[in-house]
């Protein structure tokens, strides 16, 4: 029954990006299949869909899992153009992956040609407390800097392994998108439509 309902709902295109080996696929698979996969195969590109109720409203999520390595960039711009909301993942145990978060967010703004866009930053692998090298405050600071002009940006700590905040991070991203569509986003879109006409 839920399937027939979900078909009538327009899917939301979510793109998961982030540096290599930070756990993008693990998060995506934990959310869509409720499993933690131990294999360590890098993704080139993968997609999943999942329907769920968020705040009593049906949502159909088309999630695109992407490659973290910069050498796969030839496909990057294309999927970025299609994405309606972005999940930017880094690992709290990997300083370099965190350093890339800011430039990835900048890239979203550039490709989308927007100053504000629904972006969720996920600090993953927080189950590995002993290896942690990125403090919560550090990540929060970064997101706060973006929030000054992008109110649709937020930070959540996750663990794909223990399933901590996995649903929350996707659900909150959908909430951000709804907010964006209801307010600034729709205005922006209308603006561009008008200018086209």
């Amino acid at each position: 029954m839920s399937k027939s309902v979900s078909k009538s709902v327009k899917p939301i295109k979510i793109v998961v990006i982030g540096s290599g080996g930070v756990g993008k696929s693990a998060l995506t698979l934990q959310f869509s299949k409720s499993k933690f996969f131990l294999d360590y195969d890098p993704t080139i590109e993968d997609s999943f869909s999942k329907s769920c109720y968020i705040d009593n409203e049906m949502a159909r999520l088309d999630i695109l899992d992407t490659a973290g390595q910069e050498e796969f960039t030839s496909m990057r711009e294309q999927y970025m153009r299609l994405g309606q909301a972005f999940l930017v993942v880094f690992s709290v145990t990997d300083r370099k992956g965190f350093e890339e978060v800011d430039s990835l967010i900048q890239l979203i703004y550039r490709v989308k040609d927007r100053e504000a866009f629904p972006i969720m930053v996920a600090g993953n692998k927080i189950d590995l407390q002993n290896d942690r090298c990125i403090d919560q405050s550090l990540a929060q600071e970064l997101v706060q800097r973006h929030q000054e002009f992008n109110p649709y940006c937020a930070y959540i700590e996750t663990s794909a392994k223990t399933r901590l905040n996995v649903d929350l991070v996707f659900h909150d991203l959908v909430r951000l998108l709804r907010l964006y569509n209801a307010k600034g986003g729709s205005k922006q879109a209308k603006k561009s439509k008008c200018s086209l006409l």
Binding site: S19, G20, G21, Y40, P42, G68, Q69, E70, D94, R95, K96, G97, E99, E100, S103
Partner: peptide, 12 residues
Amino acid sequence: EEGIFRVSGSVA
């Protein structure tokens, strides 16, 4: 090194 060639290096 875990994830050698997969984990990216520091751009700087």
